[in-house]
Simulated assay, not measured.
Amino acid sequence: MATAKPNKKAAAVAIDLPECPVCMETMSAPIFQCQSGHSLCNSCTQNLMPPICPICRQNLTQMRNWQLEEIVAKAKVPCPNKSAGCVYTMVSVDMEEHLKECIFREMECPLGIVFGKCSWTGKLKDMMEHFKERHTDHCNATSDEEVELTNVDIKNDDRHFFLVAQTKFLFIITVKIDTLQNMVYWTIQHIGSKKAAHDHIYEIHVLSKQNPRRKVVFTEHCFNDAIKPEEIFRQGKCAALPLEMLVHYIKDKKLSFRFFIKRIPPAPKANKNDKGDGKNDNKPGPKGPGPKPKNPNQDSKPKQNGAGPSGKGNKNKAQA
């Protein structure tokens, strides 16, 4: 009797994932077994002392439960931040990437990450309020006014940081003076998903303190906050100026710039009737008032009376 082969490309299904009997957390690959076949997560298998199964008291092994790992890999699971408001479900192998950009995740203060001076953790919706209470100088930048940096010295490394709210989104502006690379960098990152970040572009207008007519403008796509600013600077996908040029924009150790964040309008939807195959290019338009179009097959010269071009037909008719 023939047996059906399993479909390796089967669609993901929504099931309850198995939990590790030790830590009670949802298991993900790699999953190991004891001598009796009970499954444990990787962390508990490596750290449980003595290495004995809590269910049957048999020794743990390094044997993988491949079948269970395959089931887990195909299963759709809700985001762990579901209780906080996240509505996304996905296969477990995509969960790690999603958690890096989930706007409902527990976040650290960006200033704490960069400068190590703040231990705040909380939700994105509370971040701006935290900045207004604890980091006032880092959340007062707006696109309506110039942003002025003080104590700017191209001989010393420096970094400036601003949290900006625009419509319902939050953005991070980072300015870095790098004496090793002999460059100054600007970048604006969206706090959220890669897709939402890619839907935005930003402009940086560097204004000269020495000559009001002089300025330089940069335009770039936004990255999201999952990527470190240093990586953006390394790739050169940001606003950047050599320090020897920057000196022409500094006066009394002050540097000014303006920024604009714009949402890219969605592309217009294609007309379903327009297939783009050129078949309708020569299709006649609708009928209307006016002279009828000329038939291309009709001779433009008036017909002569008679049987042929010699005119004999006319002569015979006259004699008759």
Rank of each mutant, 00 (worst) to 15 (best):
A4G: 01
K5A: 13
P6M: 11
N7T: 07
A10D: 05
E25C: 11
T26I: 14
A29K: 15
F32A: 01
G37Y: 04
C44P: 06
C44H: 03
M49R: 10
M49G: 01
C56W: 00
R57G: 10
Q58G: 06
L60N: 03
R64N: 03
R64E: 04
N65M: 00
W66M: 10
W66A: 10
Q67N: 07
V72C: 13
K74V: 07
V77K: 08
P80M: 14
K82G: 11
D94C: 13
R105D: 11
R105T: 14
R105A: 13
E106A: 10
M107V: 07
E108H: 15
I113K: 15
V114S: 02
F115Y: 15
F115K: 15
G122A: 14
K123L: 11
L124T: 06
M127N: 02
M128Q: 12
E129V: 03
C139L: 10
N140K: 11
E146V: 07
E148Q: 13
T150G: 03
N151F: 08
N151D: 14
N156M: 12
R159Y: 06
R159K: 15
V164Q: 07
T167L: 13
K168Q: 14
T174H: 09
V175R: 00
K176T: 15
K176S: 14
K176V: 12
Q181W: 00
T187Q: 13
I188V: 14
K195V: 13
A197V: 03
D199W: 12
I201C: 05
E203F: 07
E203V: 04
I204D: 03
S208K: 10
N211V: 04
P212T: 14
T219P: 06
F223V: 10
N224Y: 02
E231M: 11
F233T: 11
G236Y: 07
K237E: 10
C238R: 02
A239K: 11
A239F: 08
A240P: 00
A240H: 01
P242A: 01
L243S: 01
Y249R: 05
K251M: 04
D252T: 12
L255F: 13
S256A: 13
K262P: 01
P265T: 05
P266M: 07
A267G: 08
K272S: 06
D274T: 09
D277M: 09
D277V: 02
K279T: 04
N280C: 11
N282T: 09
N282A: 07
K283H: 11
K283D: 08
P289Q: 09
P291M: 01
P293Y: 04
N297I: 06
Q298V: 08
D299Y: 08
P302I: 05
G306N: 05
S310M: 14
S310W: 08
G313L: 04
N314R: 03
K317A: 12
